[in-house]
């Protein structure tokens, strides 16, 4: 049956125009993508090659003094994303296991799990700027009065980022762990193991690539997000000393530089930041392809 379909080769007579239209659309899309890559690389290249003092590769950002280093922002992006992934991934993993493993099979229990699962899906639709807005007026005052500092900090932004990446993590894990749990479910039940025990002792140890690709995907989203760090992290272009100090990510840096229109060498740093983001994203998506864990 499969062969019959695969060997189905059309005669070249009718509707070739339609296929040509599809090829044109693919060419358009490919041209857009190629232009995007070329443009970002071409604009960043001069700054990349120039090097030297005051260029983008230094630890000091002081446009007034002609210093345009973006290394603090690179570090800021990485630190922010790592903290967000550590908390977001842990929460996501636990939530996913909770969703997959109903302890009791009561009706209320199932309903509750469906409700929470639905909420995770709704979370994918919440705009980041809305998250940011709510956090500015709710979370920052809590952090300010509870832990001190200005409230606009590494910690604040990372908490919101971990909420942002949580649905991604949960959905990837669910797609990976769910079928595997089902396949050992019957044997496990015969051995008297609950679903949660099965997950912990059997499924989790054997699904390393799913676990890693969920984390990597979350990392990619956390690095790429602009609005939450911009609104919540305080944006001081220095290395953070504690969880409560402010930091600036690459994405927030780009938004700030364009809105302030400094021009000249500041734009070079903008293009470099763009290239960095492009490269990080490229590595992330290659890593995920390598593991084949894309949902």
């Amino acid at each position: 049956m499969r062969n019959a379909v695969e060997s189905f080769r059309p005669e070249r007579r009718n509707g070739e125009a339609g296929l040509a239209v599809i090829h044109v659309s693919v060419a358009l899309a490919a041209a857009g993508m190629v232009l995007l890559f070329l443009m970002v690389v071409a604009f960043a290249l001069p700054a990349f090659l120039q090097g030297g003092g005051g260029g983008p590769f230094s630890w000091s950002w002081a446009p007034g003094k002609g210093e345009f280093g973006i290394l603090p922002m690179v570090a800021g992006s990485v630190l922010m994303a790592v903290l967000a992934v550590v908390s977001g991934w842990t929460l996501g993993l636990c939530l996913c296991c909770w969703l997959l493993a109903p302890d009791r099979s009561g009706k209320g229990d199932v309903l509750l799990r469906n409700l929470v699962g639905g909420m995770v899906r709704v979370m994918t639709a919440i705009p980041t700027v809305v998250y940011g807005f709510a956090a500015v007026f709710l979370l920052t005052p809590v952090i300010r009065s509870g832990l001190g500092g200005s409230g606009f900090s590494w910690l604040t932004a990372a908490i919101m980022l971990s909420l942002l990446i949580l649905p991604t993590v949960v959905l990837v894990l669910q797609a990976g762990l769910g079928p595997r749990l089902e396949s050992v479910r019957l044997a496990g039940a015969a051995a008297g193991l609950t679903r949660l025990e099965l997950l912990w002792y059997l499924v989790l140890p054997s699904s390393r690539s799913t676990l890693i690709s969920a984390a990597v995907l979350g990392f990619g989203r956390a690095v790429g997000d602009t609005m939450l760090p911009l609104m919540l992290a305080g944006n001081a272009p220095v290395m953070p000393e504690t969880l409560l100090s402010s930091l600036r990510t690459l994405t927030a840096h780009m938004a700030l530089v364009t809105s302030n229109e400094v021009g000249g060498a500041a734009y070079d740093s903008l293009f470099m930041a763009g290239l960095f983001l492009l490269l990080i994203n490229g590595i992330v998506s290659l890593a995920i392809r390598r593991m084949g864990g894309r949902s």
């Binding site: 995007l36 970002v40 604009f43 990619g220 790429g224 997000d225 602009t226 293009f271 994203n281 392809r289």
Partner: peptide, 21 residues
């Protein structure tokens, strides 16, 4: 692969692309 990569691209990079254009 190209579509996957584009899917993971930070949205701000698209904005930067327009700005460069």
């Amino acid at each position: 692969a190209a579509v996957d990569m584009l899917a993971g691209m930070p949205s701000i990079v698209m904005g930067l692309f327009g700005f460069m254009l």
